[in-house]
Amino acid sequence: MRTKFLNHITDVELDLTKSLDAITTDDFKKIVYDVNRVPERLRTFTKTEKEDFNTYVTAFIDRCKKKGYRTKGNQHKQYSEGTLRKYYQLIDTIALFEKEEGKKVYLNSFDSKTTDSFESFLTEQYAISTAGRKLKSLKTILTDADRNNKEVDPYFKNIRGFSYETTVVPLSEAEQELIFATPMPNKEMEVAKDWLLILCGTGQRFVDCNALSKDMIKDDVIVVTQKKTGNIAEIPIFDRVRRVIDKYNGFPPKFSDNESTQNVRLNLLIKDVCQECDIDEELEEVKNGKRGRYKKYELITTKTGRKSLATYLYKELRWDAQSCMAITGHKQLENFFIYVGGKNSAITEANKKRVEEINKETIEKRSESLKISP
């Protein structure tokens, strides 16, 4: 790709019919078109249609629901709720972008300028990995529109998603108790604190935690149908969760009815909550793809809760992995062990403690037996 670009730039430089001052942005557009093999019919692109972007995404989702897809083995399958949710969330994101820009977004809106603006908007509003996923969803929609002979700007072929690793750090029991006991300086942070305690106490993904309601509480457990997997999880109600539920006679109020907006706002506020609680240990971790030293509160996200409960149940309460996975929604045992800190060390430590308990019980029983024997 780099060689192609350099060759095309050289062609422009050696064009003796033009002076240096006469070289225009059209020359560089031609380079982009040539490198990406854009058909001639699209090179003189003129926007004539105004088809609403979100209307098309809604129709795209409906088609996905009706048609499903074929696997490599030619099996017919339905798209998962998690896959479709990405496109529903894209609709919400585009609506927020329209509000930010003060104008409608159409299928043919995504030229280089609008795409750059949208990417900047995403990286300001979301974590880098989330922004990258949304760009991938955008390109999927525009590719589908192009295949269906809809008018799209040919620049969409240059859109690239991206992903960067960010370490998910758990909060210990002591840290959660500190958060519970620390008064917040304002009501907004108090609500965010309570949501963080709910996240840590239920161990659910944000999307499931955000959907919690009082009618899900049955016989002193919270019964959740997890959106990503469809699994039904029965979650015991720990003390801090019970106190939050009692406080609101249900679950805390939301900052927004829009799921994406709620997640963005909560992600910002729970960092402030942990900073207020002086959870500021310096950690050598990765944030948005960059390894460095960060204060722990800087690494707190809505993903922290799920890892906190998984780690607590498995490493401290020594629940078996399958029971933990029934709550967290993990499907693969290997992934769960990695999630809670590494397969070998986790298994060794848990089993070591259990064997010590068994040995102690065996010795006590043996002693009792010897006392009884004549």
Rank of each mutant, 00 (worst) to 15 (best):
E101D: 07
V168D: 05
S367I: 14
L197C: 01
S19P: 00
Y106H: 05
S137E: 12
G73W: 13
T140Q: 11
V105Y: 01
D219Q: 14
Q89G: 02
T348G: 08
L178N: 07
T44K: 09
L96K: 11
F60S: 06
L196T: 03
V191L: 10
K365P: 05
F255C: 03
E356W: 10
Y79C: 07
T25K: 11
S213C: 14
T123P: 00
A233C: 08
D11F: 13
K353N: 13
D15M: 06
I141D: 02
I179W: 00
K315C: 08
F121S: 00
L283D: 05
V168P: 03
D92R: 11
Q176S: 04
A233M: 05
L299K: 06
T3V: 15
K193F: 07
L268D: 13
D52P: 09
T114L: 15
D246W: 02
D111F: 04
I198P: 05
L138Y: 01
N231T: 14
M189F: 09
D246M: 07
E282S: 15
L20N: 10
P185H: 02
I327E: 02
V105T: 09
L20W: 09
K254T: 10
Q262M: 11
K139Y: 08
G230W: 05
L178P: 02
K307N: 02
D15P: 01
V35Q: 04
Q322A: 12
T182V: 09
I217C: 10
E356L: 14
D278S: 15
Q322C: 07
Q275G: 13
I270P: 01
G230S: 07
C274T: 04
Q75Y: 15
I279Q: 04
A350F: 05
Y126Q: 03
L96V: 12
I128F: 12
G230V: 09
T304I: 04
A181T: 12
L135T: 03
K193C: 05
E282W: 13
K86D: 07
K360T: 12
G329D: 05
H330A: 05
V168H: 01
V38N: 06
I338T: 14
K296W: 02
A95K: 14
R354V: 09
E100G: 13
K193P: 04
I300P: 00
L14I: 10
T362E: 12
T44A: 09
S345L: 00
T225S: 11
L138H: 03
K66R: 11
L42A: 12
D208A: 07
K247I: 03
T229D: 08
N263S: 14
G230Q: 05
R243A: 07
D272M: 13
K77R: 12
G305Q: 04
L283T: 09
I270N: 02
K139M: 10
S256V: 02
E51P: 07
T225R: 15
F206V: 08
I327K: 00
Y88K: 08
G68Q: 07
K157P: 02
Q322V: 14
Q78Y: 12
A326N: 07
K139R: 14
D220R: 14
K295W: 01
L268K: 15
F251N: 10
P183D: 00
I338Q: 11
R41I: 15
P236E: 00
A211T: 06
T114F: 14
V207F: 02
I198S: 03
K352Q: 11
I128Y: 14
I141M: 04
L299Q: 04
G342T: 01
E364H: 10
S213T: 15
I61A: 02
